[in-house]
């Protein structure tokens, strides 16, 4: 039972994210797309150090390793 509930919660959250992205891409949207949010994080710097790029691309690298290498 908990397995079904867990999967349902994951699917509900993913569906909500998809709906938000769909709404954000409409011409009269009042919220940013997921790409806009990523762009904001990527632009974050501390001095000359691109902290946002290191964090987000590091997370991307880890996701690939986690799903495709182990």
């Amino acid at each position: 039972m908990t397995r079904v509930l867990t999967i349902a919660a994951f699917l509900a959250a993913l569906a909500c994210l998809a709906i938000l992205e769909w709404r954000a891409r409409r011409p009269d949207a009042d919220l940013p797309t997921f790409g806009d949010l990523c762009g904001h994080v990527l632009s974050y710097r501390v001095g000359r150090l691109p902290v946002g790029r290191i964090a987000l691309l590091g997370f991307w690298w880890w996701v690939g390793w986690h799903f495709f290498a182990r």
């Binding site: 867990t6 919660a9 994951f10 509900a12 959250a13 993913l14 909500c16 994210l17 938000l20 954000a24 949207a29 009042d30 919220l31 940013p32 997921f34 806009d36 949010l37 904001h40 632009s43 974050y44 710097r45």
Partner: peptide
């Protein structure tokens, strides 16, 4: 050619709930 944005884009907080549920689960 853009300078780094200091503020989050308007409406960003709406992403928090589903993203939080996903991360929490």
């Amino acid at each position: 050619g853009r300078s780094p944005a200091r503020r989050w884009p308007k409406g960003s907080t709406r992403w928090l709930l589903p993203a939080g549920v996903l991360a929490g689960m």
